[in-house]
Design a protein around this nucleic acid. Structure first.
Length: 593
RNA sequence: GGCCUCGUAGUUCAAGGGAUAGAAUAGAAGUUUCCUAAACUUUAGAUACAGGUUCGAGUCCUGUCGAGGCUACCA
């Protein structure tokens, strides 16, 4: 049990004893005491005032006296300020948490009554363009959430659905046929996803030209957009694809292989992994059965033209199409089918979709339809929505060429990491391989931390200038702190401490140890909120707190041997906690840098 | 038009209805006999506006203004 829970429990017990009314741990609100007040943990009394009909100050005095009188091995003294009861803990209680094992070891038994099976779908790229900065937020977020849930004891399955069919892929294919002259990744040296992405862009350029040309000759804009020859070709290709025309399939397969290979490279580099990848070409026909079922149950209705709809006006939404009049399924229908297939395969308790917030409406509808169809897995659907990544001068738009490519971004970060590191002149004895690894570690650490430190649901601004800043609230700062601690520990390892011995704790040591003790609670909160930013903030706070207390001088030249050992142990614990928390963000920490 | 988000220091982000709204950057001023200065210390600076609920509001409610998203027989 962690310290806060223990305090809550003791407080509830004390309240029962003093006031003869039943109390539970959850009734008690415990915060860490603000640094400017005396004490370690604070009980907020306002919430208890009403049921006890006591003035907060009186309640605080009575409760504080009782707690310190009956538990003086835990609480040494207390003070009351307004509605806050500040408790000071015995040093022994705190040193119990000195051993990092206490903070890092998670019991095999999860916090849920039984292990939950959770699917996390993330990344989910389109095969017509390479991964860009927006995807990176998705990928880092999804990966991290999966790891956090695992740490909390859930069985997690990471998945991705690759959008590999449809008109947009046909656009790339047409443009490639027309302009590529048979270019391949091998012949051009380009990554496959970039090559295909380039022809998608090329298609749009040509299309724009054709539309402009047609409108100049007097055609209405709408007609021009529909009638542009290159668009007609793409439409025809889509029809041919659906008919399974061999030469179209052949080209489609070939170009997709290039893209997959490109994605794999990117994913491997940035540390994304999936237990299972779904392909839309294999799932887009699923879900048709739901239309039949829905019609039978009266959840859906047919319009005169034969299209099928669901009426969600009672829920404050619109009518939503679930089947086109030509009998083909739409996006939402496919998703119904995929949700079902996932459930059949994995029997999940919860299925998390990491998808940008522009699809909030879509995901709301998806869940609602499944619920109306009374499917057992409907309630487990959860949309982990995240805000768009913007650039300082506005949203990324592919048409305006303001998209930041992920591979380029990583490359640029590595270049800067290398430059900054070389300037510092601390890595002269590194081998070339060690340097490569270090730069990669720093670059990805900076990028991941920057994108994960913000509350996912909020929009964020990606400032390239700031993201490569290696000072402040950044990944590299934390990595650097870790390396410095490791440097101390290379000189001298802490001896095994006898934990219950009265130790000469200073206030600042106490503060840091209490912080380390919160690690599990932070993971719990991050897991409940599906929010890695809590971990990022925590890791930074630990590093920052450590940095302001210790230098290797203050550790190795401590006043007494006993203090030195204590401080070494604190260094050790801090390094462990930093490493473990960063790991949950997918960020590696170096031994030296 | 309707629906959904979001408005906090110059800037980028924090703050389970709880104490004097925190950080980081940029600004100003400092700190290395020993120590990984990619560090640390000090300093200044903010809740869009107007009401309401409460012992107590950045947080909850209403309105105004501002930003973004959704509102496709695209995926």
């Amino acid at each position: 049990m962690n310290l806060v829970d223990r305090i809550k429990e003791q407080t509830a017990k004390a309240l029962e004893e003093v006031y003869k009314i039943p109390f539970f741990s959850d009734d008690v609100l415990v915060n860490t005491t603000k640094p400017e007040f005396e004490g370690d943990y604070t009980i907020v009394l306002f919430g208890l005032v009403k049921s006890l009909r006591k003035a907060p100050e009186v309640l605080g005095q009575e409760l504080g006296s009782h707690l310190t009188a009956n538990n003086n091995n835990i609480f040494t003294h207390f003070n009351v300020i307004k509605g806050f009861l500040n408790l000071t803990l015995a040093d022994e209680v705190i040193t119990q948490y000195l051993n990092p094992q206490n903070n890092l070891q998670f019991s095999a038994v999860p916090t849920y009554t039984e292990a939950q099976k959770i699917m996390v779908e993330y990344a989910s790229p389109n095969t017509n363009k390479p991964v860009h900065l927006g995807h990176l937020r998705n990928i880092f977020l999804g990966w991290s959430v999966a790891e956090i849930l695992k740490k909390e004891g859930s069985e997690v399955m990471k998945t991705s659905i690759v959008n590999n069919r449809g008109i947009h892929i046909c656009k790339s294919m047409i443009a490639w046929q027309l302009f590529a002259n048979g270019a391949t990744p091998q012949s051009t040296g380009l990554k496959g996803d970039h090559l295909v992405g380039d022809y998608y862009v090329r298609f749009n350029d040509e299309y724009k030209k054709e539309v402009a040309h047609l409108t100049q000759t007097g055609m209405a804009k709408e007609d021009a957009e529909k009638g542009a020859p290159i668009m007609q070709k793409a439409q025809q290709m889509l029809v041919d694809w659906e008919a399974g025309k061999p030469e179209v399939m052949e080209l489609w397969n070939r170009m997709n292989e290039w893209v997959y290979a490109g994605f794999d490279k990117t994913f491997e580099r940035i540390g994304a992994d999936f237990e299972k990848t779904y392909y839309e070409s294999e799932t887009y026909l699923l879900g048709r059965q739901f239309v039949e079922i829905g019609l039978e149950k009266g959840v859906f209705f047919k319009k005169e033209d034969g299209s099928a709809w669901i009426d969600l006006t009672a829920e404050g939404l619109d009518e939503k199409l679930v089947l086109r009049k030509d009998g083909t399924s739409v996006y939402i229908t496919q998703d119904l089918g995929l949700a079902h297939q996932k459930y059949e395969e994995f029997r999940y308790d919860k299925s998390i979709y990491v998808i940008a917030d522009e699809q909030n409406y879509h995901m709301k509808v998806l869940k609602l339809i499944l619920q109306k169809l009374n499917l057992p897995y409907a309630d487990g659907i959860y949309h982990l929505s995240y805000g768009m990544v913007e650039l300082p001068n506005g949203r990324m738009k592919s048409r305006e060429g303001t998209v930041v490519d992920a591979d380029d971004m990583v490359e640029e970060m590595v270049r800067i990491a290398a430059q900054k590191t070389e300037e510092s002149g601390k890595v002269k004895d590194f081998t070339p391989q060690e340097l490569t690894d270090l730069y990669e570690m720093i670059a990805l650490g900076a990028l991941k931390f920057f994108l994960l430190r913000v509350d996912p649901k909020k929009r964020m601004v990606f400032n390239p200038e700031e993201s490569i800043d290696f000072q402040g609230f950044t990944g590299p700062f934390i990595q650097y702190t870790h390396a410095r601690i490791k440097s101390i520990l290379r000189r001298e390892q802490p001896a095994q401490l006898t934990i219950n011995k009265r130790s000469p704790l200073l206030k600042l040591e106490k503060e840091l140890l209490l912080l380390l003790e919160q690690f599990k609670a932070v993971i719990k909160a991050a897991s409940a909120d599906l929010n890695p930013s809590l971990i990022a903030v925590y890791a930074f706070t630990v590093a920052k707190t450590y940095n302001s207390f210790y230098t290797s001088h203050s550790v190795l030249n401590a006043e007494t041997e006993e203090k030195k050992q204590l401080r070494l142990a604190i260094c050790n614990a801090t390094a462990e906690v930093i490493k473990s928390s960063m790991q949950l963000l997918g960020i590696k920490v170096p031994e030296r840098m």
